[in-house]
C-alpha cells in the first residue's frame, strides 16, 4: 500500500546570489546609514557616523518608518541613488 504525500514547502524563492563587490576604498565616497528603528540603534549609528566622518568618509542618514516592516521601495531607491555603500542596523 502506497501513501502519496504532497510537498507543503515552497521551492527555493530564488537561486543563490553573489553579493556585489565592495569598493577599493571608501575615500571620497558616500556611505548611507539606514536606521531600521530598533531601540538605541540610532545612538550606535550616530557614533559610527561620527567615527566615519573623522576618517574623511562622507555619510548620509536614512530610516525605515518602522522595524516591523521592510523598508519601502522609495527609501531603497533614494539610498541607491545617493550612496556608494550602505550600513544597515541595528538588528537585535
Amino acid at each position: 500500500m502506497t501513501t502519496i504525500l504532497l510537498d507543503p514547502t515552497a521551492a527555493r524563492a530564488s537561486p543563490a546570489r553573489q553579493r556585489v563587490a565592495g569598493h577599493r576604498s571608501l575615500e571620497g565616497l558616500t556611505v548611507g546609514l539606514l536606521d531600521i528603528r530598533k531601540r538605541q540603534g540610532d545612538v550606535v549609528l550616530d557614533h559610527l557616523e561620527r567615527l566615519l566622518g573623522e576618517r574623511g568618509i562622507r555619510t548620509g542618514r536614512y530610516a525605515k518608518p518602522t522595524f516591523t516592516k521592510p523598508a519601502p521601495g522609495a527609501v531603497i531607491d533614494r539610498i541607491a541613488s545617493e550612496c556608494d555603500a550602505v550600513i544597515e542596523g541595528l538588528a537585535d
Binding site: 569598493h23 539606514l34 550606535v44 523598508a71 541607491a80 555603500a85 542596523g89
Partner: peptide
Amino acid sequence: MLDIDRMGTPAVALVS
C-alpha cells in the same frame, strides 16, 4: 539587504 544589493550598492548589516 537584498534590495540594496540588487541595486548594485555594497551593504553591511549590523546585527546583535
